[in-house]
Amino acid sequence: MHINPKQEIRHSKFAMFGIGMLLFLLIIAIFGPLLTPYQPNSQTPFAFESPSFNHWLGTNHVGQDILSQLIYGARTSLLVGFLTALLATILSAIIGTSTALAGGLYDKIVMRIVDAFIVIPAIIVIILVAAYLKPNLLVLILLLALLGWQGGARTIRAQALSLKEMGHISAARSFGASNLYIIFRHILPDLVPILLMGFIYGVRRAVFMEAGLAFLGIADPTTVSWGMMMHEALDFCYLNVWRWWLIPPGVALSLTILSVTGIGHTLEGALDPRLRREANA
């Protein structure tokens, strides 16, 4: 089965939307400081303003510009999302392939650890650990990555186990190839679509988790993020102002997750022939 992820994505409108949206968000996040009219944390005397020419999306309770906060929030979300997913994917690739190829006691021990992690709901662990550690952004990313590789590792191990038995890998072995060579030269290239999908879902999960934690108020309060914006806005729900304040981060978060899902969904369809529509073939 030769899967070409590029081609699959190009044929799906959902995925194209996802890519477009994600690119748009990335550009905004990267060029954020150039685009924002105000510093996201600088306070003005004008609190609770509705959208106006000066403040396109209005201001919050301490007079901070919501558009600026939204743009900076995109930076946080995407940074956490991509970095966490990248770390988790690398970890799952290393652990999945190494357990599959090495086998033995190492495989048994690592897989039991994975089982344990999968049984424990990650969100509760993170809430508890975060409550104790009061993590800054980097620690949060590490924490999310450490809790996010297990499912991927299991999938990759299963795939690597079946790849391991394939003729071309036996052939490479019969030339005297080491496990490392086999992983890098033969197994990883074959796993690219799966790794890509794991990465995409990792992004989605991390973006969502980061927003959720901030929303619950367990994140670093000095970091501007969509979750934090919603957390703060919610305190003022008895006032009429929350609409201009709560809806923008909510919509941004939804669009981000939707676009990532779009890409992931298409890739998943491509990988599993049962989900493949005839028209796409």
């Binding site: 003729g167 071309h168 052939a171 019969s174 030339f175 005297g176 074959d190």
Partner: peptide, 29 residues
Amino acid sequence: VQMIFQNPGESLSHRLSVLELVRESLDIQ
């Protein structure tokens, strides 16, 4: 000691060209 595997199609990686396939054993060694 070298081996020719049962199914030639399977024992050749679809990602590698003839040059890379034949060179693989030399690369490894």
